[in-house]
Amino acid sequence: MRVKFCGTASIADMRCAVDAGCDAMGFVMGVTHQSSDVVTPAETAEMVRQLPPFIEPVAVTHLQGTEDLIRLVKDSHCTTLQIQDTVDPPEMDVIRDALPYLKIVKAVHVMDESAIQTGKRYERYADALILDTRTREKIGGTGVPHDWNISAKIVATTAIPVILAGGLTPENVTEAIRKVRPYGVDVHTGVKKDGVRNPEKTLAFAREARNALKNE
């Protein structure tokens, strides 16, 4: 089970995720809604420079303009782009043409059954989908789980990898993985303590995620 820790805002956050054996690390930039742990592309680029090999740096953003998204990836030196807000699917091909090395992950907010069709709409254009939760104020990092039954349907009917996010914690990630069967899981607020990424929670999350399917 692949594990991404999102909301990396400092070298301490980065080392915490690396020590837990993460596969990917998210950097929140270019926000238009409420969000925590926001960093600049320059700050991200400095952290990416210090990132060990074999860990994927992910630019997580609310931006929607094609040129803005391309510039964000270039300036941050990330190799994966996670688009949290709405973009026209063909625009993702424009981004891909400009940055041939880039992997694109498109967020689908699982609020009701319509998320299944939203996922299908982006399936041909994205390298993966990430199933997340949104509120009136936030389009990511809500700490709120969604209906895993819907997420499981999306995984079962989607040809590309599907990552599960939204309100995951060390305590519920095993149940979530067994229910949804995702390609990977993504956590932000669920491994925090007193507003900061916590080493014990981070290690526990990675351990629970990786062991979720071993004892079935």
Rank of each mutant, 00 (worst) to 15 (best):
E200N: 06
D13M: 09
V48R: 01
T158P: 01
D88N: 14
I83A: 12
D194A: 11
G195Y: 08
R210K: 09
R207T: 15
N172M: 07
A159T: 12
D23R: 01
A12I: 13
P145L: 07
V28T: 07
Q34F: 08
E123S: 10
C22I: 15
M111F: 15
V155I: 01
D186K: 03
A42C: 10
T66N: 08
G21A: 11
Q82K: 03
G140I: 02
K74C: 13
P89C: 13
I55A: 00
S36H: 13
P100I: 11
R207N: 12
E91W: 11
L131S: 00
F54A: 13
H77E: 12
K201G: 05
L129Q: 02
R121W: 09
L69V: 10
S114I: 10
C16K: 04
G7F: 05
L63N: 09
H109K: 07
I116K: 14
I95G: 15
A159W: 10
P199W: 03
V39L: 12
I55H: 00
K74I: 12
T40K: 03
S10C: 14
V196P: 06
V94N: 12
V3M: 02
E56Q: 08
R210G: 07
V185T: 04
L213I: 11
F5P: 01
G30L: 05
F27R: 01
Y101I: 13
V110E: 00
D132K: 00
V87R: 01
S36D: 11
P52H: 13
G143I: 06
L63M: 15
T8M: 11
V191E: 02
A126S: 14
I177S: 04
A152N: 08
D68G: 14
T133P: 02
R2Q: 09
D85T: 11
N215Y: 09
D93M: 15
E171P: 05
Q84S: 14
E91K: 14
W148M: 06
L72Q: 03
T86E: 13
A115S: 14
V180H: 01
T80M: 09
T80A: 15
P199T: 05
V144A: 10
D23Y: 00
E200C: 07
Y122I: 11
E56S: 06
S35E: 05
C6V: 08
L51T: 03
S151K: 00
R134N: 06
K103F: 12
I139Y: 04
D75P: 01
N215W: 12
V180I: 08
K192D: 07
L164R: 03
M111D: 08
P100Q: 11
R136V: 13
T189W: 05
L81T: 03
E175M: 08
Y122V: 13
A45M: 02
E91L: 10
T66E: 14
P182M: 02
A42G: 06
C78W: 01
R134Q: 13
V187P: 02
I139K: 08
H146R: 04
G166E: 02
E137C: 13
K4C: 01
M25L: 15
I95R: 14
L129M: 06
T202Y: 00
A115E: 04
I104Y: 10
